[in-house]
Design a binder for these strands. Structure first.
Length: 818
DNA sequence: AACTATGGCCACTGTT
DNA sequence: AACAGTGGCCAT
């Protein structure tokens, strides 16, 4: 063993975990937790920081004498301490209880109704030690990779002596992308690998039989000691597949930084009837590897780009402008036997594409910025659970101020009604010149600030009264925690934006841009979390008051402007569409600035976002398009909201047709528009259309999540009740397509897009056939179906100008004789 | 078991 | 033909 060297470095925290240590001390057994911090230093070393003897604690509100007595003499309890906490508007007596073993906490939560008793131990550690994503650590380098019988794979293992948070710094993480090739349901043939650290990139392909491949895979991850493991759909496909194959061969995948096995967790599940599905269908499996972070490039690329088709080839083309080598997955075994070099080339190319997609969309940088703003390990920001981010800021503030922290709510309180949301003004359909779009800057955050909305300011003595009649104390009397956090986030964001503008290099600019975006995301996330039915600090009076203030503000401006004779043609939540009373752009801008100034007060700021000329409003809400002619400066840019061109589940012909139709409408060429639509329908009906243009795609949910409808019918003759169960899934086109795809050897995992073409809509349910990459499509589309859907789409625009289906017909003169 | 909200449009099925 | 129920995706 080495001498113990001093260690000191700046470190980014990737993941935090702990273990229970127990040792003999003077004949007695001493038990304590040891926190394990996994990270990478600014200088590029991987480190494990060990922090022993940090203990778990929680609170009891209004503890009984009996409870205090019991806990004081409980051998599992390290210490108890009386204190006071603010809860439900007043100071209340409380007990702070410290245990030896984190895992004991739930039993005390249940037995004593303890609060702040469901905070994960790693978060408790970070909160209490005031740590964030980036830290400065000092300690003793333990030299050996063994510690108390435990092994770690990092360059350094350090017994922590001093630690403090430092500002976010840019430095590279080690990223490892991979892609497997396997015979469907069978053997893994090879694994392509890209390993990147800063500018340095290495590639290789593992081969030599499945056992060797899997052993090499695990060995390489450990040897390279990567921070991020990535690949295209690795969570739902590659990792589960590898796990399954490794299990068959009896191989261990002990690839965690503490040599713990990787773990795959199934997320989501079925929603109860009448309830919305809570889980983003984009992830249904989560892969956990201690000390490392799994980042599925498919998940983040789809989140960022919302593509219609989500195959690697479609995404690579869209994001990188690169083509993917074609290969028939169903014949991989034969291809491998014939020409393994080609298969390997293909495999590596896929790995590189996935890797470059991840780089291009800058996911790692974005989440690092979020980790630094939310003050959490990178791992926890990647879990995409906003409540974790808000907890990190809010619980710390509550602890500082002695405010009680309830446990996460696990019941819906039964009859609880949803709060009312934003106000949407029915649009006045038409085509308008020079429409000014105003919106409130960060409406809900500024409402929170302006009205000092917080759990801690709710009070009957409050002088700020929300439209719901809920009262909040004025800022001068007591500043709320929520407004305080909001204010510091918004202030920090203004500073980041300023530094971004002053940046001298692109890297510096990106750095501040990432920060200001993260600050914005976090500020906006507060409303959602505090209005959630499940969050620990949820109070409907808060969420309800926030939206009520918002609605009131918007409606008041609409009324005021209307009473002044202005024409408000649309409004949604925090936006207002006002037709300019002036003929020129300059006058319109000046007019808009006056309005924006008039309605901005205190923390609430109404901004002139853009001027649209012309603007088309349909008779439906949330559907409009126009040409932006001004947005802080002159512009000329078409934008669309809501229509099929924005939707991933429309077919390309429909998207293209509408896009062109929009251009005709914006050029005020209605005859051109009609002629164009007629021509497209003619082409379609004469079969002059690519199959690709008729493909419809939607995201498949897990089959078990579809509802089962129970229908009750009464037998008229005998008065018997017949109960029939019907599975919704059975008649959905998407499920039909998924099942047929599987019959043809293409597995579609839930969360991925399924593509199909309608071949017969004359029957119910309609018949569809899957449209599969690399496989022939031997059916004839139902052209009537597609014609009718196109006509419906076109008419939703054209009926604003009083055109009807007859105007889209090729023989309009026939109508004269009707 | 749930771990960010509500408002909204449209496609489709299956009943009346 | 009108409707209720369900699913999916989008606006904010």
């Amino acid at each position: 063993m080495h001498d113990m060297d001093n260690f000191e470095a700046d470190i980014k925290i990737l993941d935090v975990s702990y273990y229970n240590h127990s040792q003999k001390k003077n004949g007695a057994e001493e038990k304590f937790p040891v926190i394990e911090i996994f990270g990478r230093s600014r200088d590029g070393e991987s480190v494990t920081l060990l922090h022993p003897r940090f203990y778990p604690h929680f609170h009891l509100l209004n503890p009984t004498d009996k409870a205090i007595k019991e806990l004081s003499s409980d051998p599992q309890v390290k210490s108890v301490e009386t204190t006071e906490l603010f809860h439900e508007g007043r100071q209340q007596p409380a007990l702070n209880v410290t245990l030896y073993v984190p895992g004991d906490t739930p039993q005390y939560r249940d037995r004593y109704g303890a609060i702040a008793a469901d905070i994960l131990f790693r978060f408790r550690y970070l909160y209490d030690n005031d740590l964030g994503y980036c830290i400065h650590a000092k300690g003793k380098d333990l030299g050996s990779k063994q510690m108390a019988g435990r092994s770690y794979l990092t360059d350094r293992i350090v017994l922590l002596e001093e630690v403090k948070e430092v500002p976010y710094f840019p430095s590279p993480l080690k990223i490892f992308s991979f892609d497997i090739e396997n015979i469907i349901g069978g053997e893994i043939l090879c694994i392509g690998i890209v390993s990147q650290f800063g500018e340095k990139r290495d590639t290789c392909v593992l081969e030599g039989g499945e056992r060797k491949i899997l052993e090499d895979f695990a060995r390489l991850i450990k040897k390279e000691d990567c921070d991020i493991l990535s690949g295209y759909n690795v969570c739902n496909y590659d990792f589960p597949y590898i796990e399954g194959r490794a299990a068959r061969l009896g191989l261990k995948l002990d690839i965690g930084r503490n040599l713990r096995h990787m773990r795959i967790r199934q997320m989501g599940g079925s929603a109860k009837s009448g309830e919305k599905k809570q889980v983003d269908k984009g992830t249904n499996k989560v892969v956990e590897i201690a000390g490392r972070i799994v980042v599925d490039s498919w998940y983040f690329a789809r989140k960022e780009k919302r593509p219609k088709r989500e195959t690697l080839s479609a995404m690579a083309q869209m994001i990188l402008g690169k083509d993917k080598l074609p290969i028939d997955n169903t014949k991989l075994g034969e291809a491998w036997a014939k020409d393994p070099i080609q298969v390997k080339e293909y495999c590596l190319q896929d790995t590189i594409l996935s890797h470059e997609i991840l780089e291009k969309i800058r996911v790692i940088d974005k989440y690092q910025a979020l980790a630094s703003v939310a003050r959490l390990p990178l791992f926890d920001t990647f879990s995409d659970r906003t409540s974790v981010l808000i907890d990190s800021l809010f619980i710390r503030e509550a602890d500082r101020q002695g405010v009680a922290v309830p446990n996460t709510r696990r019941s819906n309180n039964g009859d609880e009604e949803a709060i009312e949301g934003g106000y949407v003004l029915q649009p006045i359909a038409g085509l308008y010149d020079r429409v000014i779009v105003f919106d409130f800057a960060s409406l809900y955050p500024s409402v929170i600030l302006q009205n000092n909305i917080c759990l801690t300011t709710l009070s009957d003595e409050g002088t700020i009264v929300s439209p719901l009649g809920v009262k909040f104390l004025a800022r001068e009397v007591k500043q709320g925690m929520l407004p305080r956090i909001m204010s510091s986030l918004l202030k920090a964001r203004r500073e980041s934006k300023k530094l971004m503008k002053e940046a001298k290099t692109t890297d510096e600019m990106e750095y501040y841009n990432g920060l200001q975006l993260a600050q914005k995301i976090l500020a906006n996330a507060h409303f959602g979390v505090f209005s959630s039915k499940f969050y620990r600090f949820t109070d409907q009076r808060i969420g309800g008051s926030i939206t009520a203030f918002g609605r009131e503000g918007t409606k008041r401006i609409i009324q005021t402007l209307q009473s002044e004779g202005q024409m408000i043609v649309y409004s949604d939540t925090d936006s207002l569409f006002v037709v300019s009373p002036f003929q020129t752009l300059d006058e319109t801008v000046a007019f808009g600035q006056t309005i924006a100034g008039r309605f901005s007060h205190g923390d609430i700021s109404l901004e002139m976002e853009k001027i649209i000329n012309p603007l088309f409003l349909s008779s439906a809400k949330k559907r409009y398009f126009g040409r932006i002619v001004w947005a802080g400066g002159l512009k000329s840019e078409i934008f669309v909201r809501g229509f099929e061109t924005r939707r991933g589940d429309s077919f390309d012909l429909q998207t293209r047709g509408l896009e062109t139709l929009f251009e005709y409408i914006l050029s005020r060429d209605q005859n051109g528009a009609l002629e164009y639509c007629r021509q497209m329908l003619r082409d379609l009906m004469s079969g002059k259309v690519e199959l690709e243009d008729l493909v419809i795609s939607k995201t498949a949910a897990d089959e078990s999540s579809y509802k089962v409808i129970t229908e009750e019918t009464e037998d008229t003759l005998f008065g018997e009740k017949n109960i029939r169960e019907r599975k919704v899934a059975d008649s959905l086109p998407i499920v039909q397509a998924m099942k047929k795809a599987e019959k043809r050897g293409v597995t579609i995992s839930p969360g991925m897009k399924v593509s199909w073409i309608v071949v017969d809509s004359g029957i119910t349910p309609q018949r569809v056939e899957p449209y599969l990459d690399g496989l022939p499509f031997d059916f004839s589309p139902d052209y009537i179906y597609y014609r009718d859907r196109l006509i419906d789409s076109f008419l939703r625009i054209l009926n604003v100008f009083n055109y009807t289906v007859d105007d889209l017909s090729d023989n309009p003169q026939l109508n004269l004789f009707d």
